[in-house]
């Protein structure tokens, strides 16, 4: 009875109530920020005394914001490409390979996911100080690649394990060389895994704060670093405008993923 929604009786309303409140708790901050970004109050008073677009104007007028966004995108794009490529090759080794310690290696590849990022950030900061990679795009890319790669490997190994290897065998018997079979049959069949590897890698880099704070220099900042630095001074509504733009990007990405899922199904 407890797992039948219609036969829960009064408990149904309790569960629905908690779920409704939790949903409100989860969505309201996002809604408020979007609303306040159009509010005229410098102190983010709610309800706003009037409506304005000036915070957006200030965001787009400041080259440092745009530059930071551009840097974020540039780094995230490089990280995505490298993460998917290295992840794909490693996943083939992990799923179709046979060697001692394979399972251990797989667990090792996922450890950057469980380790507190601050430890990695401090350690890499020390290392990069020595070899002069702090404040460089290369340093950013390497740092983000370390935390993005586990997501890539996880998505692609999952997809590869769900792919029936007999299909690749069939392609080879049809006359395709082993490499050709991989490129023309296996890769398209695991494209959903490659796609989610790409999305996760991109978002990991695009949203990453902690590593970025340590890697950044006054001349090279990503968007999260810029927001972080601004936040430490005051809560200016320009951040609300920037945040709203980020939320729009997030929603667009979610819709894209949902659409592609639907496309894959039909």
């Amino acid at each position: 009875m407890l797992l039948n929604f219609d036969r829960l009786g009064g408990w149904k309303w309790i569960l629905l109530g908690i779920t409704g409140l939790t949903s409100a708790f989860l969505i309201l901050p996002i809604v408020f920020i979007a609303a306040l970004s159009f509010g005229s109050s410098q102190w983010l008073i709610f309800p706003p005394p009037g409506w304005t677009l000036k915070w957006y104007a200030m965001f787009f007028a400041d080259p440092r914001w745009l530059e930071a966004a551009g840097t974020s995108f540039y780094i995230a794009a490089i990280v995505t490409v490298l993460s998917v490529l290295i992840g794909l090759v490693a996943s083939f080794g992990l799923v179709h390979g046979r060697f001692i310690g394979k399972e251990g290696l797989r667990a090792l590849f996922l450890t950057p996911m469980i380790l507190p990022v601050v430890v990695l950030a401090v350690a890499l900061y020390a290392f990069f100080l020595r070899i002069g990679l702090n404040g460089t795009v290369t340093g950013f890319v390497i740092a983000h690649l370390v935390v993005a790669l586990p997501f890539s490997i996880l998505s692609i190994t999952n997809a590869l394990e769900g792919f029936d290897k007999s299909i690749e065998d069939a392609a080879v018997l049809c006359g395709a060389s082993p490499l050709e079979a991989k490129l023309r049959i296996t890769l398209p069949s695991i494209s959903h895994g490659l796609f989610s590897a790409a999305v996760f890698s991109f978002l990991t880099s695009w949203d990453e704060v902690v590593l970025a704070i340590f890697m950044a220099s006054p001349t090279l900042q990503t968007l999260p670093v810029k927001i972080w630095a601004t936040l430490r001074q005051d809560l200016t509504p320009v951040i609300a405008a920037a945040s709203t733009l980020l939320i729009v990007v997030t929603i667009a990405l979610m819709l894209l993923v949902a659409l592609l899922r639907k496309g894959l199904k039909s």
Partner: peptide, 19 residues
Amino acid sequence: PSHKRNIGMVFQRYTLFPH
């Protein structure tokens, strides 16, 4: 090698290329 044997095969599972 398999891909040069020119042999046809139908497998136990459905091995059509899904895409």
